[in-house]
Protein backbone atom coordinates (compact mmCIF):
# COMPACT_ATOMS: atom_id res chain seq x y z
CA UNK A 1 0.00 0.00 0.00
CA UNK A 2 1.50 3.32 -0.99
CA UNK A 3 0.52 6.91 -0.28
CA UNK A 4 1.55 9.90 -2.37
CA UNK A 5 1.67 13.43 -0.95
CA UNK A 6 1.63 16.06 -3.69
CA UNK A 7 4.05 18.96 -3.27
CA UNK A 8 3.14 22.21 -5.01
CA UNK A 9 5.38 25.23 -4.71
CA UNK A 10 4.06 26.77 -1.50
CA UNK A 11 2.60 23.60 0.01
CA UNK A 12 3.53 23.66 3.68
CA UNK A 13 1.62 20.82 5.29
CA UNK A 14 3.25 18.30 2.95
CA UNK A 15 5.82 17.30 5.57
CA UNK A 16 3.10 17.03 8.21
CA UNK A 17 1.01 14.67 6.06
CA UNK A 18 4.11 12.69 5.16
CA UNK A 19 5.07 12.43 8.84
CA UNK A 20 1.56 11.43 9.85
CA UNK A 21 1.40 8.64 7.30
CA UNK A 22 4.97 7.36 7.41
CA UNK A 23 6.04 7.93 11.02
CA UNK A 24 2.79 7.77 12.94
CA UNK A 25 0.90 5.17 10.91
CA UNK A 26 3.92 3.36 9.45
CA UNK A 27 2.75 3.58 5.83
CA UNK A 28 4.88 3.57 2.69
CA UNK A 29 4.68 7.23 1.64
CA UNK A 30 6.28 9.35 -1.08
CA UNK A 31 6.24 12.97 -2.08
CA UNK A 32 4.96 13.68 -5.61
CA UNK A 33 6.48 16.82 -7.15
CA UNK A 34 3.91 19.00 -8.91
CA UNK A 35 5.76 18.83 -12.25
CA UNK A 36 5.31 15.05 -12.37
CA UNK A 37 3.78 13.99 -15.66
CA UNK A 38 3.83 10.24 -15.12
CA UNK A 39 2.43 9.09 -11.85
CA UNK A 40 4.01 6.06 -10.20
CA UNK A 41 1.80 3.50 -8.51
CA UNK A 42 -0.15 4.85 -5.56
CA UNK A 43 -3.16 3.63 -3.63
CA UNK A 44 -4.12 6.99 -2.20
CA UNK A 45 -3.17 10.57 -2.97
CA UNK A 46 -3.11 13.41 -0.47
CA UNK A 47 -3.25 17.07 -1.49
CA UNK A 48 -1.83 18.83 1.56
CA UNK A 49 -2.53 22.25 3.01
CA UNK A 50 -0.47 25.37 2.62
CA UNK A 51 -0.37 28.20 0.14
CA UNK A 52 0.23 26.59 -3.25
CA UNK A 53 1.52 29.32 -5.55
CA UNK A 54 1.13 31.72 -2.66
CA UNK A 55 -2.65 31.27 -2.95
CA UNK A 56 -2.37 34.19 -5.33
CA UNK A 57 -5.50 34.90 -7.35
CA UNK A 58 -7.46 32.31 -5.29
CA UNK A 59 -6.43 29.36 -3.17
CA UNK A 60 -5.76 26.46 -5.55
CA UNK A 61 -6.53 28.49 -8.68
CA UNK A 62 -3.00 28.21 -10.07
CA UNK A 63 -2.13 24.81 -8.60
CA UNK A 64 -4.88 23.14 -10.62
CA UNK A 65 -2.80 23.86 -13.73
CA UNK A 66 0.23 21.98 -12.39
CA UNK A 67 1.05 18.99 -14.63
CA UNK A 68 0.45 16.56 -11.78
CA UNK A 69 -3.19 17.58 -11.56
CA UNK A 70 -4.08 15.88 -14.86
CA UNK A 71 -2.80 12.65 -13.33
CA UNK A 72 -4.63 13.29 -10.07
CA UNK A 73 -7.86 13.77 -11.99
CA UNK A 74 -7.33 10.46 -13.81
CA UNK A 75 -6.46 8.78 -10.54
CA UNK A 76 -9.64 10.11 -8.94
CA UNK A 77 -11.76 9.12 -11.92
CA UNK A 78 -10.41 5.58 -11.65
CA UNK A 79 -12.16 5.44 -8.28
CA UNK A 80 -9.08 5.51 -6.06
CA UNK A 81 -9.17 7.56 -2.85
CA UNK A 82 -7.99 11.18 -2.91
CA UNK A 83 -8.12 13.56 0.03
CA UNK A 84 -7.54 17.30 -0.09
CA UNK A 85 -6.91 19.08 3.19
CA UNK A 86 -7.36 22.84 3.59
CA UNK A 87 -5.54 24.29 0.55
CA UNK A 88 -5.70 20.78 -0.92
CA UNK A 89 -9.50 21.01 -0.62
CA UNK A 90 -9.39 24.33 -2.46
CA UNK A 91 -7.29 22.74 -5.22
CA UNK A 92 -9.87 19.95 -5.58
CA UNK A 93 -12.71 22.44 -6.04
CA UNK A 94 -10.66 24.49 -8.52
CA UNK A 95 -9.83 21.31 -10.45
CA UNK A 96 -13.51 20.43 -10.65
CA UNK A 97 -13.15 17.22 -8.68
CA UNK A 98 -15.37 18.64 -5.96
CA UNK A 99 -18.22 21.17 -6.20
CA UNK A 100 -18.26 24.63 -4.66
CA UNK A 101 -15.78 27.39 -3.95
CA UNK A 102 -14.24 29.28 -1.07
CA UNK A 103 -14.71 32.83 0.14
CA UNK A 104 -12.73 34.79 2.67
CA UNK A 105 -13.60 33.83 6.26
CA UNK A 106 -16.55 35.93 7.39
CA UNK A 107 -14.36 37.40 10.16
CA UNK A 108 -12.03 38.60 7.37
CA UNK A 109 -9.20 37.16 9.42
CA UNK A 110 -7.04 34.06 9.28
CA UNK A 111 -8.11 31.71 12.03
CA UNK A 112 -6.15 28.91 13.69
CA UNK A 113 -7.91 26.97 16.42
CA UNK A 114 -9.39 23.64 17.39
CA UNK A 115 -12.94 23.13 16.16
CA UNK A 116 -15.46 20.33 16.40
CA UNK A 117 -16.84 18.64 13.33
CA UNK A 118 -19.68 16.14 13.05
CA UNK A 119 -19.41 13.19 10.70
CA UNK A 120 -22.35 13.35 8.28
CA UNK A 121 -21.23 10.62 5.92
CA UNK A 122 -19.41 7.67 7.43
CA UNK A 123 -19.24 5.66 4.24
CA UNK A 124 -16.39 7.40 2.39
CA UNK A 125 -12.97 5.71 2.38
CA UNK A 126 -11.77 8.39 4.80
CA UNK A 127 -14.64 8.16 7.28
CA UNK A 128 -15.44 4.45 7.32
CA UNK A 129 -14.16 4.05 10.87
CA UNK A 130 -16.10 7.07 12.13
CA UNK A 131 -19.53 6.52 13.51
CA UNK A 132 -22.38 8.35 11.78
CA UNK A 133 -22.70 11.60 13.74
CA UNK A 134 -19.38 11.11 15.50
CA UNK A 135 -17.89 14.40 16.72
CA UNK A 136 -14.18 14.96 16.12
CA UNK A 137 -11.98 17.74 17.50
CA UNK A 138 -9.66 18.83 14.70
CA UNK A 139 -7.82 22.12 14.19
CA UNK A 140 -8.37 24.54 11.34
CA UNK A 141 -5.91 27.11 10.01
CA UNK A 142 -7.08 29.16 7.06
CA UNK A 143 -8.07 32.59 5.84
CA UNK A 144 -10.32 31.46 3.01
CA UNK A 145 -12.36 28.61 4.41
CA UNK A 146 -15.83 29.98 3.90
CA UNK A 147 -17.39 27.25 1.75
CA UNK A 148 -19.98 28.28 -0.78
CA UNK A 149 -22.02 26.45 -3.38
CA UNK A 150 -25.16 27.35 -5.31
CA UNK A 151 -28.55 26.12 -4.09
CA UNK A 152 -29.14 23.59 -6.80
CA UNK A 153 -25.77 21.93 -6.40
CA UNK A 154 -26.21 21.97 -2.63
CA UNK A 155 -29.54 20.17 -2.95
CA UNK A 156 -27.87 17.64 -5.19
CA UNK A 157 -25.04 17.19 -2.72
CA UNK A 158 -27.44 16.71 0.17
CA UNK A 159 -29.37 14.13 -1.81
CA UNK A 160 -26.20 12.24 -2.68
CA UNK A 161 -24.95 12.43 0.88
CA UNK A 162 -21.92 14.44 -0.23
CA UNK A 163 -21.61 16.56 2.92
CA UNK A 164 -19.05 14.65 4.94
CA UNK A 165 -18.44 16.99 7.90
CA UNK A 166 -20.20 19.96 9.46
CA UNK A 167 -18.76 22.37 12.03
CA UNK A 168 -20.51 21.85 15.33
CA UNK A 169 -20.15 22.42 19.06
CA UNK A 170 -18.70 19.88 21.48
CA UNK A 171 -22.11 18.24 21.74
CA UNK A 172 -22.46 17.85 17.98
CA UNK A 173 -24.94 20.68 17.35
CA UNK A 174 -24.19 22.54 14.12
CA UNK A 175 -24.84 26.00 15.55
CA UNK A 176 -24.00 29.41 14.09
CA UNK A 177 -21.52 30.00 16.94
CA UNK A 178 -19.64 26.84 16.09
CA UNK A 179 -19.18 27.87 12.47
CA UNK A 180 -15.67 29.39 12.40
CA UNK A 181 -15.68 30.93 8.94
CA UNK A 182 -19.24 31.40 7.68
CA UNK A 183 -19.35 28.24 5.58
CA UNK A 184 -22.72 27.51 4.04
CA UNK A 185 -24.68 25.08 6.21
CA UNK A 186 -21.62 24.72 8.47
CA UNK A 187 -19.97 22.59 5.78
CA UNK A 188 -16.45 21.55 6.78
CA UNK A 189 -15.89 18.66 4.41
CA UNK A 190 -17.48 17.15 1.31
CA UNK A 191 -16.99 14.31 -1.16
CA UNK A 192 -17.71 13.75 -4.82
CA UNK A 193 -20.73 11.80 -6.00
CA UNK A 194 -18.77 8.54 -5.94
CA UNK A 195 -17.39 9.23 -2.47
CA UNK A 196 -13.74 8.48 -3.28
CA UNK A 197 -12.64 12.13 -3.38
CA UNK A 198 -12.90 13.94 -0.06
CA UNK A 199 -12.03 17.55 0.78
CA UNK A 200 -11.94 18.96 4.30
CA UNK A 201 -10.80 22.27 5.75
CA UNK A 202 -9.74 20.93 9.18
CA UNK A 203 -6.30 19.34 9.43
CA UNK A 204 -6.46 15.74 10.66
CA UNK A 205 -2.69 15.35 10.25
CA UNK A 206 -2.22 17.90 13.04
CA UNK A 207 -3.85 15.83 15.73
CA UNK A 208 -2.53 12.31 15.57
CA UNK A 209 -0.11 12.13 18.49
CA UNK A 210 -0.40 12.36 22.24
CA UNK A 211 2.30 15.01 22.49
CA UNK A 212 0.15 17.31 20.35
CA UNK A 213 -2.65 16.86 22.85
CA UNK A 214 -5.20 15.28 20.53
CA UNK A 215 -5.41 12.12 18.41
CA UNK A 216 -8.82 12.61 16.79
CA UNK A 217 -7.32 13.02 13.32
CA UNK A 218 -6.00 9.46 13.27
CA UNK A 219 -9.38 8.01 12.38
CA UNK A 220 -9.36 9.70 8.95
CA UNK A 221 -6.18 8.03 7.79
CA UNK A 222 -6.85 4.76 9.60
CA UNK A 223 -10.14 4.63 7.74
CA UNK A 224 -8.51 4.82 4.35
CA UNK A 225 -5.85 2.28 5.34
CA UNK A 226 -8.61 -0.04 6.45
CA UNK A 227 -10.54 0.63 3.26
CA UNK A 228 -7.50 -0.07 1.11
CA UNK A 229 -6.78 -3.30 2.94
CA UNK A 230 -10.33 -4.40 2.25
CA UNK A 231 -9.93 -3.32 -1.35
CA UNK A 232 -6.80 -5.40 -1.71
CA UNK A 233 -8.66 -8.53 -0.58
CA UNK A 234 -11.44 -7.89 -3.09
CA UNK A 235 -8.93 -7.43 -5.89
Amino acid sequence: MKFGVVVFPGSNCDIDCYHALRDVLDQDTEYIWHMTKHLGFYDCIVLPGGFSYGSYLRGGAIARFSPVMDRVVEFAQSGKPVIGISNGFQVLTEAGLLPGAFLRNNSMKFVCENVYIRTENASTPFTKLCGEGQVLKIPIAHGDGNYYVDDRTLKDMEQNNQVVFRYCDAEGEATAESNPNGSLQNIAGICNREGNVVGMMPHPERCMEEILGNRDGTVIFKSVINYLKGGAVND
Binding site: N12, C13, I15, D16, H19, A20, G49, K109, F110, V111, C112, E113, P139, A141, H203, E205, R206, M208, E209, I211, L212, G213
Partner: peptide, 14 residues
Protein backbone atom coordinates in the same frame (compact mmCIF):
# COMPACT_ATOMS: atom_id res chain seq x y z
CA UNK B 1 -3.87 37.81 18.29
CA UNK B 2 -2.54 34.27 18.19
CA UNK B 3 -5.57 32.69 16.59
CA UNK B 4 -4.54 34.71 13.53
CA UNK B 5 -1.21 32.87 13.58
CA UNK B 6 -0.89 29.31 12.39
CA UNK B 7 0.88 28.04 15.51
CA UNK B 8 0.37 24.35 14.69
CA UNK B 9 1.87 23.87 11.22
CA UNK B 10 4.86 21.49 11.22
CA UNK B 11 2.96 19.51 13.92
CA UNK B 12 5.63 20.01 16.55
CA UNK B 13 3.92 22.53 18.83
CA UNK B 14 3.55 20.67 22.11
Amino acid sequence: VYRQYDYMVRTCTA
